[in-house]
C-alpha cells in the first residue's frame, strides 16, 4: 500500500490539516508520500518533511499550481497516481474542489469527508448532516478519499523526510485565477482553534458580533457563526460552522444566540466541551451543551468578558 497525501497550504504555511491527514493515512498502513503543489512554497516543503511517518515529500513548485486551480491539480495528481493505491486530501474548499475531478478522471468513486479509517478499503463518514453515520466499502482499484481533519489527531513533527521534485507541468487554458479577497485576522483559523465562540441569529445584526471580540481575545478563540447569521447577512460565509460550512471540534465551543438547528450541530457537536448561551430555554442547543446559561446575551456577554 502507498498513500499520496495532498498537503494543505497557502504557499507560505503548511496548514495543520496536513498532519491530521498523515495521521489518518497511517491507519491505512503502507508508505506515506506527501505532495506539495504550489508556487514558491519552499517553507511549506520544509514543514512537510518534518511530519512523522512521511517517507518522502514530492514538490511540484510551479506557477501553474500557485492558486491550486482544480483543473491543473487534478491533472497533476492523476499522472502521479499510478504509483499509489490511495490519494488522501483534506475535506477543505481546496480538497473538495479538485478531488472529485481526480476520481472521475480515474473512473473511481470518491469517499468524501471520512471521519474514521476502518481498513484500507472501508471508511466511516457522516451523511444527512451527521444524523447518520455510514460505513462504506469500495472495491475500486484506487481509493480517492477526502478526510474531515477535525476527526483525527495530528501526526507529530519530529522527522526529516527527503524531498523529490516533480517536473510535471499542467496548465489548463480554460480557467484562470483573477483575484482573492482573504479575510485578515489575528485570530486563529476556525478549523485550527482550541476555542471557538460563535454567534447566531440572536446576535440581531453584524455590529453586535463585536460583543464576541473581547471574549475571543481573552480566550485566544476564533469567531464563528451559524448559517442563520450568515444568511441574514450579519457576517461573511467563511465564518460559517455547520453542515455546509466548516466542521470543527475544538476543546471549547461557546454558542451564543444559536438555537441549534441540525445543520449547525453537524458542524460542532464533536467539540469537547460545549457552552450555550440563549434566552430560550427550549432551544435545542441546550440538548447538546455541557453547560447551558439561559439569559439575554446582551447582558451575559459583557459579564463573561469581565469575568475572564
Amino acid at each position: 500500500m502507498s498513500i499520496l497525501v495532498y498537503a494543505e497550504h497557502d504557499n507560505t504555511d503548511l496548514k495543520p490539516e496536513t498532519n491530521k491527514l498523515v495521521h489518518a493515512a497511517k491507519q491505512v498502513g503502507g508508505d506515506i508520500i506527501v505532495l506539495v503543489a504550489g508556487a514558491n512554497c519552499g517553507a511549506v516543503v520544509e514543514s512537510a518533511t518534518k511530519i512523522d511517518g512521511v517517507a518522502k515529500v514530492l514538490v511540484a513548485d510551479n506557477e501553474a499550481y500557485e492558486h491550486q486551480l482544480p483543473e491543473n491539480i487534478a491533472e497533476l495528481i492523476i499522472e502521479l497516481a499510478t504509483d499509489y493505491t490511495h490519494v488522501f486530501a483534506a475535506a477543505t474548499t481546496t480538497g473538495k474542489n479538485f478531488m472529485p475531478r481526480v476520481a472521475a478522471l480515474l473512473d473511481v468513486a470518491q469517499i468524501s469527508d471520512v471521519i474514521k479509517v476502518e481498513s484500507e478499503d472501508t471508511f466511516v463518514r457522516p451523511i444527512y448532516a451527521g444524523n447518520a453515520i455510514a460505513t462504506v466499502q469500495t472495491t475500486d482499484y484506487k481509493k480517492i478519499v477526502t478526510v474531515r481533519a477535525a476527526a483525527f489527531d495530528a501526526a507529530g513533527n519530529d522527522n526529516s523526510a527527503p524531498t523529490e521534485s516533480v517536473d510535471i507541468i499542467k496548465a489548463a487554458e480554460k480557467s484562470a485565477f483573477v483575484s482573492a479577497e482573504l479575510t485578515e485576522s489575528e485570530r486563529p483559523e476556525l478549523t485550527a482553534a482550541d476555542v471557538i465562540i460563535s454567534g447566531g441569529r440572536g446576535m440581531q445584526n453584524g455590529e453586535n458580533f463585536a460583543l464576541l471580540n473581547g471574549i475571543a481575545d481573552k480566550l485566544g478563540a476564533a469567531i464563528g457563526a451559524s448559517r442563520a447569521a450568515v444568511d441574514a447577512g450579519f457576517v461573511p460565509n467563511d465564518m460559517q460552522v455547520g453542515q455546509t460550512g466548516k466542521i470543527v471540534a475544538p476543546q471549547l465551543y461557546i454558542a451564543v444566540g444559536i438555537s441549534g438547528a441540525i445543520q449547525h450541530l453537524a458542524g460542532m457537536k464533536d467539540s469537547k466541551v460545549i457552552v450555550a448561551i440563549n434566552k430560550d430555554e427550549e432551544a435545542p442547543i441546550f440538548q447538546v451543551a455541557d453547560y447551558g446559561l439561559v439569559g439575554d446575551l446582551f447582558e451575559e456577554l459583557p459579564k463573561l468578558e469581565a469575568s475572564l
Binding site: 468513486a109 462504506v136 447538546v288 453547560y291 439561559v294
Partner: peptide, 24 residues
C-alpha cells in the same frame, strides 16, 4: 457502483449537561 453501504448507525448522542445560574 463499486462502493457498498456496509451499515448505517445513528450518531453517538451527546448527553445534555447542566444549566448554570450565572456567568460566574
Amino acid at each position: 457502483s463499486n462502493v457498498t453501504l456496509v451499515k448505517v448507525m445513528p450518531p453517538e448522542q451527546r448527553k445534555g449537561g447542566v444549566t448554570v445560574g450565572s456567568v460566574e
